[in-house]
């Protein structure tokens, strides 16, 4: 029964969700909102599981002096600091000028932006590997990337300013983005949509059970 009950619930909820999309009548017209509310409530409760798990693992790491336990100290200190300040500030903890907002604006946001900024360097290193003309496909990728990048910057237009309108690098870049790129992306999207239908059916019908540990 431990496996059957989740399968029955999944199947029933899946069917209800399909039906409610086509039937605007009560109670189907309210089901989407109900399930969203329930999910939000479960999610809100589950955050405690996550937070406690994070604390437990970090405390264990410190207690047993596991490798890199210093990071666990930082985690616990940050966790307690932001939680305590949040509770002390009360309901208006998100208002401008509060200590919570200060921590968010001047500690969290710069750290987050720093992580995001690393992306620029990773794009460069990944592009270097991807755009090496090792075979026909990679050469095609390299050429398409070259034309699109050149077409997106003013120098590309300046270099081809002598050509008639419609034949400049900007136009080539726009053509690549509008036709081959869009066509390829739509083909992937159609495949994804069909994949979602197929996976959903397997889960609703109880054929797919690997998330419950298989057969």
């Amino acid at each position: 029964m431990r496996r059957e009950i989740p399968l029955i619930i999944t199947g029933l909820v899946g069917i209800v969700f399909v039906v409610q999309y086509f039937i605007p009548h009560w109670p189907f017209n309210r089901m989407n909102a109900w399930f969203s509310d329930w999910f939000s409530i479960v999610q809100a409760c589950a955050i405690w599981l996550g937070a406690l798990n994070l604390l437990k693992i970090s405390l264990e790491k410190i207690a047993r002096r596991k490798s890199d336990w210093g990071y666990a100290v930082v985690i616990i200190a940050s966790f307690l600091l932001i939680t305590i300040i949040g509770f002390v500030e009360g309901e208006s903890f998100r208002d401008p000028g509060t200590r919570f907002t200060w921590l968010y604006d001047f500690v969290y946001t710069p750290l987050s932006s720093t992580m995001f900024a690393i992306l620029a360097f990773f794009v460069a290193s990944a592009s270097y590997r991807a755009f090496r003309a090792r075979n026909f496909e990679a050469t095609l990728l390299l050429l398409a990337a070259f034309f699109v990048m050149m077409g997106r910057v003013p120098v590309g237009d300046a270099l081809t300013a002598f050509m008639p309108e419609g034949w400049r690098l900007t136009d080539l870049a726009t053509w690549i983005m509008n036709f081959p790129q869009t066509a390829g992306q739509r083909a992937i999207m159609i495949g994804i949509a069909l994949g979602i239908v197929s996976t959903s059916l397997r889960i609703i019908l109880g054929i797919e059970r690997s998330h419950l540990g298989g057969d």
Partner: peptide
Amino acid sequence: LIGEELFAASAYLS
């Protein structure tokens, strides 16, 4: 795994 292959993976591996 491009798009649909992600969804096909479990069935394929089984």
